[in-house]
Simulated scan of single mutants.
Amino acid sequence: MSIVVDQDGVEDVVTRARLEVRTGAAWAAWEVATAAHADLAAPVAARQERGGVQGGLGERVLPVVWACVAPGERPGYPAVLETFLVRHEERLKRLFSQYGTGSAGAVDAEPGRCELYASPVSLMVLERLTGSGSRVRLAGHWKNEDLDQSWLKDAATAWDVTP
């Protein structure tokens, strides 16, 4: 794996992750999230991000999430994500019924506030929010990539953690 550095010579882990997300474990994790998202969001979702990560919210957020997964953990991350989805299935169902696309919470929210839940990458964000170390890395990368801060804050609040 090559090291990607920014103009100041500092390693840019998000850019490196962006190069990796369409292969191997990152792609397998995306497929796990996509399948689970279809099941969890289907009762309320009028639209879902399908057909891969390119062009949607996932294309912007997945590299940030992937940068928070340590290189040594990446090969096993799809299994970690599956375990998380099974362990938290009921909680995730409640979350999507409250905040998923088409839900009362999404309809009543300011425009864009619940947009993260329209994408399978939301499940990977929630998984990363469960660990304090990964939560701190996620918040830092999120801010550096200039993603909408309300998405992460709202997800953390709904998941009952501090970003």
Rank of each mutant, 00 (worst) to 15 (best):
E145S: 15
V14G: 09
R91K: 08
R47N: 08
V69R: 03
Y117S: 08
V53L: 15
R22Y: 15
H141G: 04
T130L: 03
G51V: 10
P111V: 07
P43H: 08
A28Q: 15
P71L: 13
R128F: 00
G56A: 06
A106K: 07
L57R: 07
I3C: 06
T34Y: 06
T83L: 05
Q98N: 11
A33N: 06
H88C: 01
E115Y: 01
A79L: 13
A139S: 14
K153L: 12
L85N: 09
A104F: 08
A26M: 01
P163A: 11
G58T: 11
H88E: 06
Q149D: 11
C68A: 06
A41R: 10
V5C: 11
L85W: 13
V13M: 04
H88N: 04
G52E: 13
R50G: 13
Y77L: 13
D154L: 10
E90I: 14
E11K: 11
V13G: 01
R16V: 04
A28W: 01
T101N: 13
E110M: 10
Y77P: 04
R94A: 11
V125R: 10
E31D: 13
E82Y: 09
P78R: 02
R91V: 07
P71T: 04
C68P: 02
K143C: 10
V10P: 03
P111E: 09
